[in-house]
Computed example of a mutant assay.
Amino acid sequence: MFDSHLSRVVTVNFVSALIISFVGCYFLKTVNLTDVMDIANIFGLFFLVTFGIDILVESGDIENNRQRFILAIALILAFDLAFLIMVPLLFGDVFYVTDTLAFAVGGTKLSFSFNVYVYLAIFAVLMMVFNYLLYLKDRERYG
């Protein structure tokens, strides 16, 4: 599955996605919105997983089957790991914020904590949904 052309395309897409995320982080830091710095991850993930994999399917480098989803999961894990390591090195400790959502349902109080890991998991699920929708579209196109 990974020949030299495919690995080159994936590497270029990966580096481009990291640059897109870092530009988003830089913008958020310049406008003093470091509390939501993890939102820049979604820009890079969208470019890498949705746009990048769709290009690979259209070029015929990967098949529009489970290879698409295995590659998407691997890229999401690698990208999130690189994002979590490199953003604090470049922009300081910006992942210290924890959001709390509390509400009552039927007299029972429910409280949820959202930190950077929860948000990255939500973004990963969102990208897999986008990838699935593109899979359905490409399945109709390529048979």
Rank of each mutant, 00 (worst) to 15 (best):
A72C: 10
K29M: 15
M37N: 09
I42Q: 06
I85E: 05
V36A: 14
T50D: 09
F27W: 12
I85A: 08
V49L: 10
D93F: 05
G107F: 01
D35E: 14
L101N: 11
G60S: 03
F43W: 05
P88N: 07
V23F: 09
T30I: 15
T108D: 09
L56H: 00
I53V: 02
G44D: 03
V36Y: 14
L101M: 15
F91I: 10
L81P: 05
G52P: 07
F51H: 11
L84E: 03
D61K: 03
V94F: 12
L101S: 14
N65T: 00
A82P: 09
L110Y: 13
G106D: 04
L110R: 09
V23W: 02
L77N: 12
V87T: 02
A40Y: 12
F69C: 12
A82T: 09
L101V: 15
V49K: 12
M37C: 06
D38H: 14
F46M: 10
F91P: 12
I62C: 07
L75P: 02
N32G: 13
I42T: 15
L110E: 08
V57C: 04
I55D: 00
V31L: 13
V105I: 10
E63S: 05
L110M: 12
I85P: 07
I76V: 07
S21C: 05
